[in-house]
Structures are given as C-alpha cells and as structure tokens.
Design a protein around this nucleic acid. Structure first.
Length: 532
RNA sequence: GCAGCUGUAGCUCAGUUGGUUAGAGCGCUGGUCUGUGGAACCAGAGGUCGGUGGUUCAAGUCCACCCAGCUGUACCA
C-alpha cells in the first residue's frame, strides 16, 4: 500500500446533487402545490418503491440477459436482476397489473419521487431527479387525455407560471406513423426519422433536414449519420412544419415547431411579419386539425390520429382551455418506445440567460401520453392508459434561473449565547422554554470564549435574534435580546461609528428573565416570522 | 460512445524562454478579545502541481499515453 496515508478525496459522483435548506424548502412547497392540484382533479396518492425487477421495467437488452446500461441495475442474491426505477409509469403499470382485482378501473392515481437514469448529465440534467406523475389507467376516453393536458396547464398556473409563459403541446403518434407509412419509409428507419423530428426545436429546419438525408456535422466536427431518405420522402415529412397553401386557410410557423392554422379573427389584418407571441394568440387548434385532415387525406392512420385529437381538443375548449395554453403541434414526438397515441409535452416559453450571459432555452419540463400497451404486458387483456409527468428537478432548476423561486434561506433558530461556562444548565433551560413555546432555538455549542464568534455563528445561521445573559444581567435577574435582523439593517444605514454603536444598542432590549418567550416573540413578530 | 477544451491549496486563480524551498485572495483554525455579528491586525493548518512514463544537469512548465471534469453531439423510457 502507499507509504504515506493518503487522504480520502471527498467527492460527489457526477450528475448527483446535494441539496441545502433553501432547496429542500422550495421543493416541499412545489410538491405541495402540485399535489393539491392533482388531488383537486380526483387523483389519489400511491407510492411504489424505488427498486423493481428489471423485467418489470422492460429494460432488458434485446437478445441478452443483461439490463440496458441506461438503468442502474444489480443482481439480487438469487441472481435476478433488479433496477432503480427510471420513471414512475412503469412501476405503476406493475402495481396495477399486480393488484388488478382490487384497484378498480378507471384507476386514477398520482405519485412523486426520485427516479434514476444512468446517462451523461448536463446542466439541469441529473442522474437522480424528481418526477411528479399522474395516470388514469383503464380508460380509452379522449376525455382522459384532455384531462391530462388541462391538469398540466392548471398545475403550471398553480406554480405561478402564467399563461403565455408555458404551453402544453399535444400531438398524436398515429399522425406521424401514418405519414411515415404513406411516404413508404422503411420501418427500420422510423426510429431514426422520429428522433430527427424530435430535434426540431434544437437543431432547426436545416439541421433536421440534414439528419433526414445524408447526415449532420455538429460544431465540434462530430458527424451524425442521417436516415438517408429520398428528397421526395423528406419533402413529405417536412409538411409537418413547412407552411403550406390550402385555400381558405392561413398558416403561421413558429420557430422550432410545427405549422399552425390561424383563426378567422386574424384574417382581416394579417401580416406576414407577426411577432412570435402575436401569432400564438391567433392559432386555432380546430382549424389546424381541419387543415391537417386535408393535408394528410391519403394517410388513413393519420386521419385516425387527427380525429382523436379533435375529440380531445373539443373537450379542452369546452372547459375553457384554448390554443394559448394547449396547442396541437405536429412536431412533438416523445417517448418512442411506449406511447401509442396522443403525446403531450409542457414547454416553458420564457427565454433567459445563464450566469455566463448565454441564452438558455429550458424546453420540456413535463410530458406524457397514452400508453395502451404498458399494463397489458403483464395481462392477457388490453388496459388503455394515459399519464403525465412533471420533471420537478428540471422545473425547479428553470424557475430558479428565472428568479421565480424564493432563494432566500429560511430564518434560523434563536441562538442562546454562552457567557459563563459554569451556567450551561441555565442557558439550556432558556432554550427549553423557547422550544416549549414552539420557537426554534439552540444553545451555542462552539467555543464560547470569544463572544464575537457567537454572534458570527448566529449571523451565519440566519438567526433572527440571540439571547444574552452575562454576569451583569444575571445579577439583575434580566436577559438581553439582540435583534440581528434589525441590527443588520441599521448598520447598513449608518456610517459614523458612534451613531452605529448607538443604533446597534437600539436593536437590543433587556427584559426580566420571566419575559424571555414574550420578548423573543416580539422580535419574530417584528419580522413577520411568528407564523410559519 | 464520438469530438473539442480544461486539470496548480477546501474555493477562485498566478507561476516568466524549463532554473533554488510552488505563491496570492477568499475560506478554515487560533490569537489580539468571555460583554456585542457581517470590521481590522497577527499567526497557523492545508499541495503526491490529475496519474504514469519519457526528454533534460534540471520539468508545475516540453513530449507520449492514461484518468477526471466541462462543452457540443449521440442515446434519453
């Protein structure tokens, strides 16, 4: 072994994060808000463990008895493969299948928790992150899908993200399938083509065209192989986002998105140079779907998907959700492996800049769709289901960057300072009094020799005030309460030293010993900390 | 996985064309100072210069390989 005892390097595995007091408090608030909204929609809570059998998650590699490397997996003592869950939907499907007799369909439940993905992390992307998920299992009704979209929109607004700062996009996988089929694209290429379409918002029209054709070179010089489609085939796919001419319709295109038909209301004064925000005000979901019916009239599967979307959209519109909050968008792809019909995606439309001044687009903070095949993997019968997940961690990261999260740490405990080491018991008794009155309090546990250090500590802990009883106060049967928040404010205002000291004294009050709780409460009330 | 960039103290970084014992600021610990915080001053702890090998009288500095991190890209249920 090494000659020198080498120090252990303290380090956190990449893609994982420690979370401090402020972060935890913000997460708690967010979870509470979302849960309330989900319960309002009638969903009931359900929790499943973080570990499942790998086969239940459906992540064995084809033709191998080894799990996909994207999931954290290990073998049980009986050699069966176990995995950390990578989403909350697959475990739910297992739960429903296992308790099929008792759950009662349609089964509507919600859950939140940590999920794990063994992938390359990036800004706002972690290997452990939190999802919040709602599902309706056992209903094929378009109303169930509509409800997912409405729930997504309502939840965003409950989180104080205003209408216009987000959009719930909805598409139908059947539309895409129908087009791929009609364009006579070989099924072996479908996955590649869908993945390319999914990158529209990031790579733009040109980038996607390159990926559909011969391939694309990124800025570092790395080359991505394309789908090698013929120009005709590419043209058929590009109808999804290229403005087309159909008599009686006007279209607009949003950057990185599909093409949308505009409402009549806009016909009068239409300008080709409408601002992006202006355009979204005039988008008409139903007209867009009508136009798609014309465009894709030869693709029977697409028409089926469009018909489903019409039903969903009419439910949403009847409930007052228009195209500003819920918008059909032919470029949404999502979860290639198990979504079978409608797919949804929640996108933050706010742009901002990061700490290096570069523009950041948050993109998707949630999504979902209909997964009619997931539960039936365990069953002999079809169990149509639809669900929706919010990426809590990513949404939190986005809102923090936008300055929409209260980042100020919570007030700390009242700190009882120590003057006489011999009277620790008496100080502890004061702490007990405060705790009995439900006030967070603690005795100073560091080296009490230097009184200044005790105040520094209290300051760092964000303590609203400290309790002081030195020999002077003790002799008179008194205690001193020092208001640290007031002290901080006053010291910022005043410049002169004498004045500073005087003001500082004002932030202190001396009261009889018996009034400890009362005096501390007064300080808390002054700073509105009395009500948690 | 592929590509580009970067690795010096807990953190942010300096370190000349290769040249004595590798520095600074912040932070930390202690002291000035058991009676008043975010102030000042003093002292201290803390380094296999990412690793291994090579070139050289001499390597933090040059070369090769490896490792790690960041960014892009691929995959992303």
């Amino acid at each position: 072994m090494a000659d020198k005892p080498s120090k252990l390097k303290a380090r956190l595995p990449r893609g994982l994060a420690d979370r401090g007091a402020a972060d935890i408090a913000a997460t708690r608030r967010m979870i509470e808000t979302i849960a309330k909204q989900f319960e309002l929609y009638g969903f009931e809570p359900l929790e499943t463990p973080a570990i499942e059998y790998t086969d239940a998650l459906g992540k064995f590699l084809p033709d191998q008895d080894r799990p996909n490397e994207g999931v954290f997996s290990f073998q049980d003592d009986d050699e069966q493969w176990l995995s950390l869950r990578y989403d909350l939907t697959a475990p739910l499907a297992r739960y429903v299948a296992e308790n099929f007799q008792t759950v009662g369909l349609p089964y509507r439940s919600y859950r939140y928790g940590w999920v794990f993905r063994n992938e390359k992390p990036g800004p706002g992307r972690f290997r452990q992150f939190m999802q919040f998920d709602a599902d309706t299992v056992g209903s094929a009704s378009p109303a169930a899908d509509a409800e997912m979209c409405m729930l997504a929109a309502d939840t965003m607004e409950a989180l104080n993200i205003k209408s216009g700062s987000f959009v719930v996009k909805i598409n139908n996988r059947k539309i895409l399938d129908g087009i791929l089929d009609t364009a006579k694209i070989s099924p072996t290429k479908w996955l590649t083509v869908l993945r390319a379409i999914d990158k529209l918002d990031r790579l733009g029209f040109e980038g996607v065209r390159a990926l559909l054709g011969s391939g694309r070179k990124d800025e570092s010089g790395d080359f991505t192989k394309g789908a090698e489609l013929s120009p005709d085939q590419i043209e058929m796919i590009e109808v999804l986002w290229r403005p087309v001419e159909i008599p009686g319709y006007k279209f607009a295109s949003l950057g990185g998105s599909g093409t949308f038909a505009l409402s009549q209301a806009n016909d009068a004064g239409q300008s080709k140079n409408m601002e992006r925000v202006g355009v979204s005000d005039y988008i008409d979901n139903m007209k867009t779907l009508d136009a798609w019916e014309i465009l894709f009239s030869k693709a029977t599967k697409s028409l089926e998907g469009i018909h489903e979307l019409k039903q969903i959209i009419s439910v949403c519109e009847a409930a007052g959700f228009g195209s500003k909050r819920i918008r059909v968008d032919s470029s949404v792809v999502r979860g290639l492996e198990y979504y079978t019909g409608p797919v949804y995606e929640v996108e933050l439309t706010l742009d901002t800049i990061d700490d290096k001044g570069r523009p950041v687009r948050f993109g998707s903070v949630g999504g979902g769709g209909r997964y009619d095949g997931l539960v039936s993997r365990f069953m002999g019968q079809p169990v149509p289901s639809t669900g929706f997940s919010i990426g809590v961690s990513r949404l939190m990261a986005a809102l923090t960057l936008l300055g929409k999260i209260e980042s100020k740490p919570e007030a700390g405990p009242v700190v009882v300072t120590v003057f006489d080491k011999d009277r620790l018991g008496e100080y502890q008794a004061m702490v007990k009094q405060l705790r009995d009155a439900k006030i967070r309090a603690e005795i100073y546990l560091g080296n009490p020799k230097n009184f200044g250090n005790q105040l520094k500590y209290a300051d760092r802990r964000n303590a609203p005030c400290v309790v002081i009883q030195g020999s002077d106060e003790k002799a008179k049967g008194e205690i001193t309460i020092k208001d640290l928040i007031l002290g901080a404010e006053l010291s910022k205002l005043e410049k002169g030293r004498d004045e500073y000291l005087q003001k500082q004294a004002e932030a202190q009050t001396t009261v009889p010993e018996g009034k400890l709780v009362e005096a501390v409460r007064a300080v808390l009330k002054r700073h509105k900390l009395d009500k948690p």
